[in-house]
Nucleic acid binder design. Structure first.
Lengths: 243, 243
DNA sequence: CCAAAAGTGTTCAGGATACACCCATGA
DNA sequence: TCATGGGTGTATCCTGAACACTTTTGG
């Protein structure tokens, strides 16, 4: 049963994925209201229902717009400029889509990470969502570009303090893939020997009896991330840091 | 000129202060609606105006309720449980205060730090706000205790990654005061020699030609935090961390 | 001169950085 | 057998942790 929507509040979700080389963000096409307009993209998002908390709204929205479900999600930031929806096309689209005259909408953004695998690709293609390169965003509606940049900041800092990177990799991955991910997102070069040494010290990376296949060079060993052993580890050691 | 308030959204502000020994949070007394009720306290907060962004609302609210102005503020977290206001007294208070029947209010919480000095004390006393010990919170309305705990988490982690602690100390402070602050908030013991060594290495702590006065032991040197030189420092060196 | 807290140095272990070659595979 | 990227070890430096005594003031 649907209840009323709240006309003041929306959620918008920044879903990042990694294609092995580049960081991608999931956008949905915004329906054109006149045929001459160029294609526009926006973040998956929607107005919230009055009987849902925001985390639930965000999950439902993702499920509905992209078919994605049960994925990593955290609150990112609230965008509340009273004039954030001032463009006429934006207003029309909102009126057309939700049947409300948007005087002002405050949006709560969410930050999310997924492994781009076949089932995810299938889901997102059915939902008419597309994976866009974060470095080349064009025709993004509303203030969604700003929201994506905020998400990118969050991603960079989270990656350096928690093992969140594994959310972006396949279940089985090579150390090199992990390193590529860090290099791509943080925009730095990392010494491969030192990176291995550091990362393989952790007990939560478990080496599988399996190798890359069909590569015309020495095949790399595959690893898996063990979230449980990571949490065990954390409970014990909390070291004091001062900057 | 006042515009309409938005009946769905409020801001609530967790203001932390440090009295030299204990961490304090600023609460305002909630007006009693019947004389038999016990005193209740809440976070400074209010419904937002339609023409203000949330940061502005938060600043105005603090100014109005506590006299504080121009202080450190950052977004903390959105609390949106549809039933977060279900208690009858809470509903009545909202109806009485804002003239609206609260079906549901989503609140955006803010995190804030101030130096408790004489002018701040004067302002907060006039505003009937009180500095309550974070460890002994009683009679806190709504879900404000949960919000305060979220703020405490944020404080702990921010203190370890940025020099935010100085917001809680007087302009001129001793190294020991700084250490006490870290120990009190993080709940740990810190070796005094190692702490000094670490902290005094930073160029943004500048030693003054001044000492504590009127203490019956060796008087400590006073220091000041130089935010500008901190920012310069940051621009240069950004070292890669992987957890 | 006594009580109280400030201030100071050294040693050791573990982590970060820099750096160059051999190995396994497919074509 | 060659091209390609995977995988490995060592030396040096730096940082964090542990630890006890002297100094300066007020009373």
């Amino acid at each position: 049963m649907r209840t009323a929507i709240n006309p003041s509040i929306s959620v918008d979700i920044v879903v990042f994925g990694f294609d092995g080389t580049r960081l991608k963000v999931l956008l949905v096409e915004r329906q054109k209201l006149n045929s001459s307009a160029t294609k526009e993209y926006k973040l998956p998002g929607s107005m919230i229902a009055e009987n849902e908390d925001l985390d639930t709204s965000a999950h439902h929205t993702l499920q509905n717009l992209t078919g994605l479900n049960n994925i990593y999600l955290e609150q990112l930031h609230v965008f509340s400029d009273p004039n954030r929806i001032s463009n006429e096309d934006d207003k029309k689209w909102i009126e057309f889509t939700y049947g409300i005259t948007a005087t002002r909408i405050v949006t709560v953004s969410y930050f999310s990470l997924v492994k781009i695998n076949l089932s995810v690709l299938k889901a997102t293609m059915q939902g008419k969502a597309s994976w866009c390169d974060v470095q080349e965003l064009k025709h993004v509606s509303f203030d969604h570009k700003e929201i994506i940049l905020k998400g990118l900041d969050r991603l960079k800092s989270r990656m350096q303090s928690t093992p969140i990177a594994f959310e972006l990799l396949p279940k089985k991955f090579t150390i090199k893939q992990l390193q590529n991910l860090y290099e791509a997102i943080l925009g730095v070069d990392i010494d491969n020997r030192n990176f291995r040494k550091k990362i393989l010290k952790y007990p939560f990376l478990i080496q599988l009896d399996e190798k890359e296949a069909k590569v015309n060079h020495k095949p790399a060993l595959l690893y898996q991330f063990d979230a449980h052993s990571y949490r065990q580890e954390q409970k014990k050691l909390k070291k004091l840091k001062i900057f």
